[in-house]
Design a protein around this nucleic acid. Sequence first.
DNA 1: TTCGTTACTGACTCATTGGTCAGCAAGAAT
DNA 2: ATTCTTGCTGACCAATGAGTCAGTAACGAA
Lengths: 205, 205
Amino acid sequence: MNEPRYQRRKDDRPAEITQAAFSTFVEKGYAGTRLEEVARRAGVSKGLLYLYFKTKEELFKSVVKNFVVPRLHELETTIASTDLGAEAFLRGPFVDFAHTITRSPVGKIVRLLVAEGPKHPDLLQFYWDNVVSRGIKMIGALLEKGVAAGEFRRSPVTEQPLLFIMPVVFSVIFRLLFGKQDVDTDRLIDTQIDLLITQLKGSTK
Amino acid sequence: MNEPRYQRRKDDRPAEITQAAFSTFVEKGYAGTRLEEVARRAGVSKGLLYLYFKTKEELFKSVVKNFVVPRLHELETTIASTDLGAEAFLRGPFVDFAHTITRSPVGKIVRLLVAEGPKHPDLLQFYWDNVVSRGIKMIGALLEKGVAAGEFRRSPVTEQPLLFIMPVVFSVIFRLLFGKQDVDTDRLIDTQIDLLITQLKGSTK
DNA sequence: TTCGTTACTGACTCATTGGTCAGCAAGAAT
DNA sequence: ATTCTTGCTGACCAATGAGTCAGTAACGAA
């Protein structure tokens, strides 16, 4: 007769709660996020959160794991299945990715990571292993491919994939902080990548 | 007979409290900083803090004002009084500055700014006006000087001084987060600056 | 229908801490 | 010495929010 007040949906709860936490973290920041509010958005009680996630920190890790890592995965997949040359890939899909991520909510999680990282060493370790380190390797491999194909010459740049990652991270953060000052982060990214490629293609001296 | 329990030192208190706040913020982060502890380190009672600084946020602003801004000032002074050419200045004093700031406690304040910025819009505005904007102008002027002296040619790089600032900010943050992974941030900075200068000196096509 | 399991609720606890203020005492003025 | 001003103290308050747990009800099994 009466509607049930709730349904048991053990399997879906973690994903739903993580989704709610993602939006809330993005809007309110880590410290600013009330678990009460996460619960409300997920349509559950606060107590239930603690059944699936031991602490607030656990919940944050779940967000990083489920929303940031997959993005990198996409890029890895794209790179693996592309038939573009190294230069074309960098100027095309990679730059697009950089522009997109700069505006995406995922970018805000990156900022949160900067903000909260030092307080959560194991989260940083996880992020290093699953995002940064793999990102570096990915670019590194791409540059090697370029060298092998005779597109690029070796130089300090081929040894430092971070030079490609730097403008992406910088733009994400810069835009979040000073977005209202209308700095053209897209152009910054474009110029940097162009610069790097020019250097890579310059004749060996 | 008895030692006085405290001395009245109206003039020195703000500086002493700001100094204590600086160390505490650097060690504990913004949210992690207890005003009680700041008071203890400054050798005063918690109540006195509120006589000189209305809120915790005010105190944080004071730290930025007194510890970050002066650093930029130094660089501006150096640049104004140097007789080095633009290239020599960038490769010398500027790169030194970048290496130093990367390891300095001041760097940690920059990270705090990233972390706390969005919650304190007027702090961000202050920082933009007094640090970022001036930094950009400073580099911009230096590049112009180089162009005027015939050292550099115009290119997208001369229009985007941020390309020089980017590796500094990135290194500061990256080192704070992933310092244990021994990434050579100095080399990153060197390569980037070298790259930019190479581009600036390349012949006009 | 009855029973047992357990997903789920929500009122509660309790540590934490930014901020206040009534009063005290240092040191200047007289 | 005595008085006055005010820099300074520290006990206190009010709010906040993470985390708990005894009890409730959904729902599958028998």
